[in-house]
Write a protein that binds this DNA or RNA. Structure first.
Length: 818
RNA sequence: GUCGGCGUGGCGGAAUGGCAGACGCGCCAGCCUUAGGAGCUGGUGCCCGAAAGGGCGUGGAGGUUCAAAUCCUCUCGCCGACACCA
């Protein structure tokens, strides 16, 4: 920075802190609960406070800020809050690394202070009066309150179950936190299965609504809706009871999505853990079955679930009776059947199921076709036929279309009382217990007399002990008395999954200081739903599914009037540098201090918006950033030193037609507004660059700096403001404006001003471009044809042939087809 | 394996049926300057051509259409999600 520019230039280090201070003092982004203006709730996912921010983290906060600033100028009462998802393991790990010397609370608060300062340095405005921190008692008190609500509504229960255990974090995990059998936080660590008694939330009660209401979320990325649909995994089918041969009273219930293939069942398969395995096994087979079951139990989840390996199983020697035709079929045990899904037992129809087919081939089991494809019945199947067709080998149902037979066979099962239609889900209940210190304690007490007793609401919060130590080791924490009988009792020492904290934080922003309830229903109903929600796609299932669930429960409890929390969802891409996601630990981060100290926050903000489509990952380069700096310096001179630019061209005083620029300004207002609204920031920046170029050209060609010019300059500054707010305010002030630019009104789009009187009409002959004609807008077709035929180039291309067909798109193109 | 997304100049990317390459980076030439990592002017998809002009061109092959980067079919490549859910 030693060299001195010849022309005057702004110095970001001087103007940025100046305006940040003014915004803070005036509380520019404070949201009023009682404003007559229409509300706009603009939210970014609250982050885990892991330390210093990089410009990479800042990208989605800038997106939120650009939208918030424009919406304010457009006359909305904008709620743009911020907070911290502050409970979680990194704080504990940091504490452990230093031998417990650094308390997680201290570590968390220090990190929050650093990140807050950096957000402010980026010029990002929030209503900091509404800041929430999930690890503070005045927040987690209400997280506990909501747990009690779940408990009262029968949605929180304690059960013994085989659960996922992360050996590194030493805690259990929810299904959603297990990815390919590995911990979501440690991609190289396999989770273990443990049988433990844990707390669950009954999200499966809401499976249908969570699935069906996805149809309402038309402003969510399709990708996320598909992922949630698959995760919930609803399937429609039937359950049927197969009697066990020689064991009256015993039957095996199976679930199938293909009741139309019931006549094709040639064997049954039980999961190794199925409770009837021992009973149906014959003495002759017992040793082998036990050995197989034992082996399956020892295998890891990853091995069990691999689709690569060959299917294995053993016959039990037992037989079942097919309820539709009385046929006796062998019962096998195989680990490709999961005890956790459906009924843990299946009827195997190898002719019409790929997995059963593979298994039947390997163990030489019979394959019977019961559905003939439209191409006609095949003599020998080479692979399972899973499509629809005509029923064969199916008794009274022969000849029916398989879709009709599906219904008829269900009717028949129901009439005979041996089965019924059934719906199943992949979604499991949400395991929320965590064996960790740094989380919200689950507010229940175990009493020898009264069993599970919830902590009364007036006794909340159940505070974490001051000292950082595993809770089961802190006697003063768990040793308590029963709220019911007063006798000695033991407090629950597990804390809640941090995804509970984040399932309702956006409600707390509506009434962050309410000390009587988690949120004020009236205020929450005023601000909700969130109009724009921005965050990473990694929460496509986890946080976004859990939050939807919470909202539906609160709706049912009469505490909230909305059934979906987020109207429009946007997943931003990540910022990379040297090919890797930018992060402090990877050593490729650009810090906000570095940025602000060199090119400035405004340049960084615009660059992050201009660098590429907002949903794509982008590569940060210093050269690209410098291009934006040049643009801003050019705007600065354009706005404040128009004279020098005109003088430079040596034509000051000449007169040029101002109507072209007038149109350009009007068009830019329309396009920039639309593209900001649609979060297409990269193209919005491009339009502003075009406008600045056009204004510069106007001056250079001798355009007058009259009252209209002054208007154009103010329009440019306003349009630029959401992107470069510091520079905007500085220019606004120097233009002699009294109020704050942040409070100025957004330019209105004037379609009449933007309309082009003359258009370039493309002339094609047989679809090939032959000429361009400048014509009046709205030219009638006959006139367009006449003008086109008058062109030498067109006549040459037609080569004497008359056009037999004319396609005319007014103001765009005319295509003459010989 | 299944589902989804993406594939456009040297680079980031525009254009969602109607002029391919907006805007920017980079590069080339020139101007200005004591100096340039500043500013300004012009150029910049590829091929032929001195130019005028012409031809080709959005991973590949087909198709629909007066017209395709855009819609359809197949195919290749990259990325993501799910992965024995009966």
């Amino acid at each position: 920075m030693a060299s001195r520019p010849r022309r005057s230039a702004f110095v970001s280090q001087e103007i940025e802190p100046k305006w940040q201070k003014v915004w803070a003092e005036r509380g520019v982004m404070k949201a009023s609960d009682s404003s007559p203006k229409p509300k706009y709730y603009d939210l970014v996912m609250y982050p885990y406070p892991s330390g210093d921010l990089t410009v990479g983290h800042a990208r989605n906060y800038v997106m939120g800020d650009v939208l918030a600033r424009m919406k304010r100028m457009q006359g909305f009462e904008v709620l743009h809050p911020f907070g911290w998802d502050a409970f979680g393991l990194p704080a504990e790990n940091a504490a452990m690394k230093r031998g417990g010397g650094l308390h997680p609370a201290k570590w968390t608060r220090d990190n929050i202070a650093k990140a807050t300062r950096e957000l402010k340095m980026m010029g990002i405005l929030y209503d900091w009066d509404r800041e929430v921190t999930s690890s503070e008692p005045d927040y987690y008190r209400w997280t506990q309150w909501l747990f009690l609500l779940m408990y009262e509504r029968g949605l929180a229960y304690r059960a013994m179950a085989p659960v996922n255990w992360c050996p590194v974090d030493k805690t259990v995990l929810a299904n959603e936190q297990v990815i390919n059998g590995r911990c979501w936080r440690h991609p190289d660590v396999e989770v273990e299965k443990r049988d433990l008694e844990q707390w669950f939330l009954k999200i499966t009660d809401y499976a249908d609504r969570l699935l069906d209401d996805l149809a309402l979320l038309d402003k969510w990325p399709q990708k996320v809706r598909v992922m949630q649909t698959n995760w919930i995994g609803r399937s429609m089918g039937a359950e049927a009871d197969f009697a066990v041969d020689g064991m009256p009273g015993d039957s095996i219930r199976i679930y199938t999505t293909r009741p139309d293939t019931l006549f094709g069942a040639t064997f049954m398969v039980l999961a190794p853990e199925h409770p009837l395995v021992e009973r149906v096994t014959s003495e002759k087979h017992r040793a082998r079955v036990r050995e197989y079951v034992e082996k399956a139990r020892k295998e890891t989840e990853i091995e069990r679930l691999s689709t690569e390996r060959e299917k294995t199983g053993v016959a039990t020697g037992g037989f079942a009776i097919n309820p539709v035709n009385g046929e006796k079929i062998p019962i096998w045990v195989a680990d490709y059947v999961l005890v956790t899904y459906g009924t843990g037992a299946i009827m195997a129809v190898p002719a019409h199921d790929e997995r059963d087919f593979e298994f039947a081939q390997r163990y030489d089991l019979p394959i019977r076709q019961v559905i003939a494809p439209p191409s006609g019945p095949q003599v020998r199947l080479r692979e399972a036929y899973v499509g629809p067709g005509t029923m064969v080998n199916s008794g009274e149902f022969n000849g029916l279309d398989s879709a009709i037979a599906f219904e008829r066979i269900c009717d028949s099962l129901e009439a005979k009382g041996v089965g019924k239609r059934a719906v199943k889900y992949r979604l499991r209940d949400w395991l929320i217990s965590r064996q960790r210190y740094w989380g919200a304690p689950i507010p229940v007490v175990y009493c020898p007399t009264d069993g599970i007793v919830p902590v009364p609401r007036e006794d909340l919060p159940v505070l974490l002990p001051e000292e950082y130590r595993p809770l089961p080791e802190v006697e003063s924490f768990w040793k308590t008395t029963c709220p019911k009988c007063g006798g000695p009792a033991r407090r629950e020492t597990d804390t809640m999954d941090t995804f509970i904290d984040s399932s309702w934080y956006f409600l707390r922003y509506a009434s962050p200081h309410d000390n009587a309830e988690p949120f004020d229903s009236e205020l929450a109903n005023h601000w909700m739903p969130v109009d724009q929600y921005t965050g990473g796609v990694e929460h496509a299932i986890l946080h976004l599914l859990y939050s939807r669930f919470f909202i539906k429960v609160l709706y049912d409890a009469g505490l909230l009037a909305v059934t979906e929390p987020f109207v429009r969802l946007f997943n931003q891409g990540m910022v990379k540098r040297f090919g890797q996601v930018m992060s402090k630990s990877a050593g490729n981060g650009v810090s906000i201090d570095e940025l602000a100290g060199a090119q400035g926050a405004d340049a960084g903000r615009i660059y992050e918006m201009f660098i590429g489509p907002p949903e794509e990952d982008v590569e940060w380069t210093d050269a690209g950033l410098n291009g934006v700096v040049k643009f801003l310096q050019r705007v600065w001179r354009l706005v404040l030193e128009a004279q020098s630019i005109a003088a430079e061209a040596g034509q000051a005083g000449a007169t040029v037609d101002a109507s072209g620029l007038r149109r350009k300004v009007a068009q830019t207002v329309g396009k920039v507004t639309e593209h900001f609204d649609e979060l297409r920031f990269n193209t919005a920046v491009a339009f502003l660059m075009e406008l600045a170029n056009a204004m510069q050209d106007y001056l250079r060609s001798g355009g007058a700096r009259d009252a209209e010019w002054d208007e154009h300059v103010r329009t440019l500054v306003k349009l630029l403001n959401p992107l470069a707010p510091h520079l905007g305010e500085e220019m606004w002030e120097r233009l002699g404006e009294k109020g704050m630019l942040a409070d100025a009104s957004w330019p209105a789009f004037d379609a009449a001003l933007a309309a082009e009187p003359k258009v370039v009409l493309v002339v094609q002959v047989a679809g090939k471009l032959r000429d361009r004609l400048e014509v009046d807008a709205g030219l009638p077709e006959a006139e367009a044809v006449r003008l086109a035929l008058a062109s030498d180039k067109v006549r040459a291309a037609l080569d004497g042939r008359g056009p037999s067909k004319v396609v005319y798109v007014p103001d765009r193109l005319i295509n003459l087809v010989p």
